[in-house]
């Protein structure tokens, strides 16, 4: 499921996908700006590296998709950003613990509750005690037009991604989170909730441990 409907899709749509994903989300930006100068962080599922742009921190981004990581490398290098990128699995990020972590629009691609909780637990294990991790997932309760794909309000869905130039359709798997579900998953993963809320069709949570 994740191999065909997540990994392979991102590898295939990387160049176009990256062009549509440039604007940092305001609350992620706020979280990053709050980190102390010289803090070391990890971005699990960094995609095109759009959050590796704040030079007061050193953010290491990782992603399964080499095509996306190559784009992230090029972009961050052109922007003269601190930080770095590498390829790794989201459930096996090979680093010793750092000061903070983000994982934005990633956890919803894991297809069982156990793997989603494990993914959160793994990210938390990469943050020093007392450090914070921020997670964003797509919400079931969506308010904009994109929600049309899901009139039946199913939580486990395939979302078509159409490459405009070729009209190729790729189906991506998502688990759409209900209100409070992310909080419960984060607590189950051993996290203590610092902040949480809803922004732009997504639930987010900031967790410490």
């Amino acid at each position: 499921m994740e191999e065909t409907h997540v990994h392979a899709v991102y590898e295939a749509i990387a160049p176009h996908f990256s062009n549509t994903r440039y604007k940092p989300w305001p609350l992620v930006e706020k979280f990053l700006l709050e980190q102390e100068k010289g803090s070391i962080g990890v971005d699990v599922g960094c995609g095109n590296g759009k959050y590796i742009r704040y030079n007061h921190v050193y953010l290491m981004g990782c992603d399964r998709s080499l095509n996306l990581v190559e784009i992230a490398r090029k972009e961050t290098s052109e922007r003269k950003n601190n930080g770095d990128v590498f390829t790794s699995d989201g459930l096996n990020v090979p680093i010793r613990p750092v000061d903070f972590a983000i994982s934005i629009a990633v956890i919803h691609h894991f297809h069982t509750p156990e793997r989603r909780i494990e993914a959160i637990r793994h990210v938390l294990s990469k943050v020093k005690k007392g450090g914070k991790a921020m997670f964003y997932v797509w919400a079931l309760e969506q308010k904009n037009a994109r929600a049309n794909f899901n009139v039946e309000k199913k939580q486990d869905v395939m979302v078509p991604y159409v490459v405009p130039t070729t009209k190729e359709v790729h189906e991506r798997y998502y688990h759409l989170y209900k209100e409070n579900e992310l909080l419960l998953d984060a607590q189950e993963a051993g996290g203590t909730i610092v902040d949480h809320g809803y922004e732009r069709d997504n639930w987010y949570v900031i967790v410490t441990h």
Binding site: E36, K37, G38, S39, I40, N55, H56, K80, N82, D99
Partner: peptide, 17 residues
């Protein structure tokens, strides 16, 4: 080699880690 802007406080804080 890739040039990056030098920031004294940044390097000091990184060195602690």
């Amino acid at each position: 080699h890739e040039d990056l802007e030098f920031d004294e406080d940044f390097i000091k804080n990184v060195m602690v880690k």
